[in-house]
Design a protein around this nucleic acid. Structure first.
Lengths: 149, 149
DNA sequence: GAAGCTATGTCATGATGCTGACATGAGTCA
DNA sequence: TGACTCATGTCAGCATCATGACATAGCTTC
């Protein structure tokens, strides 16, 4: 069988490498969160919710760049496990402000540590200044792609 | 409604920005390929096939990091549109070597130009040396995450 | 107050990708 | 030769996420 070692000129493509990096990170995060019984979307939701408590479903969805429907499923899963709480009746309008429970906060702390370890492992080969530059350049790429002109 | 402009400390996370960049790139590529009637997986398949003709379904799947089943669907779509050809009987084993048709090559050239334009737009804010460094650092991140030790 | 607009939560549906499983062909070794 | 292993193509089922649609609640405007 022909070896795939001869990767060809694909690694020279930034887009290809960017996708590979994002996929590898997602896989590593999945593996790190799996023992905690959390998926990546669930962790993201908890993290945002911790930094900005009281967000509604739609606001959470926008913050994580998914649809309201997807976030609704995530929230329902977290709610069934008692990690977040939503009032049954809306205090204002139809938005149901979501809050972390104590159990949710505990889960988040463990998950956050696991995710941070993964990120640290990913960035280990890079010096601090190179990490800053990578972050800056990636942000520049995002800005260049998003039609916010 | 609370403004989302107050992004919080999330943009300081490299992983978060990495995902955002990959998502923005995917969206931009989708938009660029849509007028050509191609999806991103289909384009990726054509590109790999052009660089390494005669690859089988399983080999293509490995090259693009998807499963054989997914690649099979992509190939079937391309085959139905006459962009690739597969022999009905396997010349050796069960592997069916795939080839680009003339029409497929033409589509690929247009799609490749569109994708290259997107990549160029994404990298426009970065100097050539910074682009090289970005590519290098991303590759280092991938290597640090993939357990190939 | 009535009409219209916007935002929210939720349901149904479809697309896409994966895991599991199976039969077939080729090479390997007793 | 015959059993065993491996890779391939393909089918079925499941998970995830998106789009489309709908009813409801609040604000705006006349």
């Amino acid at each position: 069988m022909s070896q795939v070692e001869q990767v060809g000129p694909l690694d020279k493509a930034v887009g290809y490498t960017l996708k590979r990096a994002a996929t590898a990170l997602r896989t590593a995060m999945d593996a790190a969160l799996q023992p905690l019984g959390l998926t990546v979307p669930q962790y993201s939701c908890l993290e945002v919710l911790s930094q900005r408590p009281g967000l509604s479903n739609a606001e959470l969805a926008r913050a994580v760049f998914v649809t309201r429907q997807s976030m609704n499923l995530v929230l329902r899963g977290l709610q069934d496990r008692g990690l977040v709480t939503r009032p049954t009746t809306a205090p204002h309008g139809r938005a149901l402000p979501t809050s972390l429970t104590a159990d949710g906060d505990e889960h988040l702390r463990a998950a956050s540590a696991a995710v941070r370890a993964v990120e640290k492992r990913m960035l280990a080969p890079l010096s601090a200044s190179r990490q800053d530059r990578l972050l800056h350049d990636l942000t520049a790429c995002v800005d260049a792609l998003t039609p916010e002109d």
